[in-house]
Computed example of a mutant assay.
Amino acid sequence: MATISYNQSSASALALLTGSTRALERQTVRVASGREVNQASDNAAYWSIATSMRSTGLSLSSAQDAAGLAAATTDIASLGMEAATGIVSEIKAKLILARSPGVDRDAVNAEIAQLKEQLGTVSESASFNGENWLQASGAPGVKSLVASLSTGPDGTTSINTIEVDTSETTLTSSGNPEDGLLTRTYSGTTPAGNAYEYYLLSSGGTPASATAKEVGISNATTEDELDGMISAVDSMLSGLTSAGARLGATSGRIGGNMDFLSKLQDSIERGVGRLVDADMEESAVKLAAAKVQQQLQTIGLNIANEQAKSILTLFR
């Protein structure tokens, strides 16, 4: 029996329309966001896992940025060390040339002086983000570079670092001359049996040894002195080569860690996607179906309301 105070048909049609509207809203959000799980109420377990994994991914992104800064600093230092090694090799070649009879050693020394100025420029210029591992004003120290992150079973995050001892890479030191590969004193004995003590660059202070001399020649320089300078420069080159190798190994290690972090981030994104991403083709079909269902139920509600209007006309 039809009644005016309560229209059961209209109420049922309205309830169906309300459910269709909510379903349409859910499908619209899924299609717009591309996610099946947008909030905890959609799937609490998947949402919790995805939130945790996104946090880990964000931490990895920060670690990758920090590793990028470390890589840039290492690359600059490595480039400077390579340039310094080449210049010192040229100085050695000039000293060997000066060993030949009849060579104007004063002219050769002018070239050596220019090369030494280049070394100073290289040492000062090898700086990135305020870090210069080739030049020290105080005592060199150990630098801890961010390499990667690791997460323990309890969810705690640990930062993995790579240690770089700048005492092994410092070229010039204005504090203690012995801290710099080019400012420290190299001593030994010449083939003729005479002792020598030489340093290549002046640090602006007093050499560690009062008897040490700066590498430099003139027409009055003896062959025995040249032999001592060549031996000292050989020792410098050995130290420079070792320092360059260490920097290269560090750069390679940082680069490998950055590649790993990048791949790990991609894996995390894929893992999160498998949990919360929506099947866009399926969602698009469901969205279209929800729209049609809403339209049909709107028509049904209109029909139910028209029936009530027809009954009201009997009382006019």
Rank of each mutant, 00 (worst) to 15 (best):
A110R: 04
E269D: 15
S187W: 07
E178F: 05
L14K: 10
S150F: 12
T172Q: 12
A243F: 05
R105S: 00
V285P: 00
M229K: 00
I299D: 13
G120C: 01
V233L: 03
L171V: 09
I112N: 00
E111W: 01
S251P: 03
A245M: 08
R274A: 13
T250M: 07
I311F: 14
M1T: 11
G216S: 11
A15E: 05
D227H: 01
G256S: 13
V272L: 05
D234I: 00
N38G: 05
A308Q: 15
S167H: 08
T161V: 14
Q294K: 11
S209T: 09
T51M: 14
V29W: 01
Q297W: 00
S173R: 06
K116E: 04
A23E: 04
N38Y: 04
L79T: 15
V122H: 03
L201F: 06
N302M: 10
L69P: 00
L296M: 13
I159G: 07
E282Q: 13
I217T: 00
S238N: 08
I254E: 02
T206W: 10
Q39A: 12
L16Q: 12
F260A: 14
T170P: 02
L171N: 06
E168G: 10
V103R: 10
S187I: 02
P140V: 10
Q297K: 06
V122C: 03
T161Y: 06
T161G: 11
L97G: 11
D259I: 07
T166P: 04
N176T: 10
P153S: 13
L145Y: 11
D65P: 03
D279Y: 02
S52R: 15
I162W: 07
R54K: 15
N160F: 08
A32E: 03
A208V: 10
S55P: 12
A139D: 13
E90A: 12
G244C: 07
K94C: 05
A98Y: 04
A40S: 12
I299T: 12
V292E: 09
I4P: 02
L240Y: 04
S137E: 15
R253L: 12
L16K: 09
V285Q: 06
M280C: 05
L226C: 01
T185G: 04
S187P: 01
W133F: 12
V108R: 02
I91G: 02
P101Y: 08
A44Q: 14
V122G: 04
R54P: 04
P153C: 11
T157A: 13
E131A: 13
G180Q: 07
G130T: 06
G34D: 07
L312T: 03
L275D: 06
P177Y: 02
W47I: 06
R270A: 15
T170M: 08
V164C: 05
A23Q: 08
E111K: 01
S125R: 09
A288L: 09
T121W: 00
T161F: 08
A139N: 15
R30W: 03
Q297I: 03
G86N: 11
K92N: 13
P153A: 12
Q135R: 14
E90V: 08
A32D: 04
Y186M: 00
R54V: 12
G188F: 00
G216Y: 01
S173T: 09
V37L: 05
L95R: 01
V292W: 03
A67Q: 05
A13L: 01
A220E: 15
A50P: 09
